[in-house]
Amino acid sequence: MPHQTPAMIALADSSAFATGAARPAARITRRRHAAVLPGFGTSLAITSLVVLALIVFPLAVLVLRAASLGPAGFLAAAWTPRARAAYGVSLSASVIAAVASSLLGLLVAWVLARVSFPGRRILDALVDVPLALPTAVAGLVYSALYVKKGWLGQWLVPLGIQGAYSYLGIVLVLVFVSLPFAIRVVQPVIESLDRDTEEAARILGASRTQTFLRVVLPAILPAVVTGFALSLARALGEYGSVVFISGNMPFKTEIAPVLIVARLEEFAYAEATTVAVLLLAMSITLLVIVNTLQQRLARNAQ
């Protein structure tokens, strides 16, 4: 991966997708000399302390608390019609947003990597804004922009496009929070593409579309899928921005985290926890599926 900044590698590497795809050379060296380097004990102690105390322990408590209901109680609490609808909204909106992010991200990444135009650097920098802007602020601002009185809503609402307090609103903020992931993973891969191959294809008579589909797409697809998975993971867990724009209508625009909060307010801790555990299981399952898919694609591309 030439000229890929570590930040980008980090993004591409996130969520355990690329953990299998490390550099073999470095690995062999490491294995040969591992015993020489100091600090194994100390770093193991610090790492396991933090991972156990901050990740394993809280999630174990969460799962045990939900398990205390027993299988029947768990299902009764976590699989009500309303809860099923909420998982559906959370999942479908996240998938749609991740698809939209991947497509829009591909466009932006392509332009940033391939076309030179005035303001390219600025556009490049702006892409990272959603990483740094608090999501609650994003939710408040988006809902204010898309209502009838808002900057964008005054044009869109008369056309019948409701960007606030609607399913579309949820998708919009989810695209906002996930867009940088989709762009930053694909951009370096496009930059590193061998343009000679593309030109060769063109010389051999392939159309622009054919070149893209046959030459470019297979090369960037693993990265696009990684971007999709990252966007999906980010979108599924998102709460702060969605709660301000969704309208929270049961069966329509109510997401699973809102349901967790609602159950808590009925003092139903175990029931709230079941929804949380199921949400957790869904995101992890999805990540594993996409991870497998991505690895297969990467193997095919080689």
């Binding site: 009500t80 069966f251 029931e271």
Partner: peptide, 14 residues
């Protein structure tokens, strides 16, 4: 009215 599966939930049940 507000319990799980109560009157409020029934209003929204498709």
């Amino acid at each position: 009215f507000f319990g799980e599966g109560g009157v409020f939930d029934a209003i929204y049940q498709p």
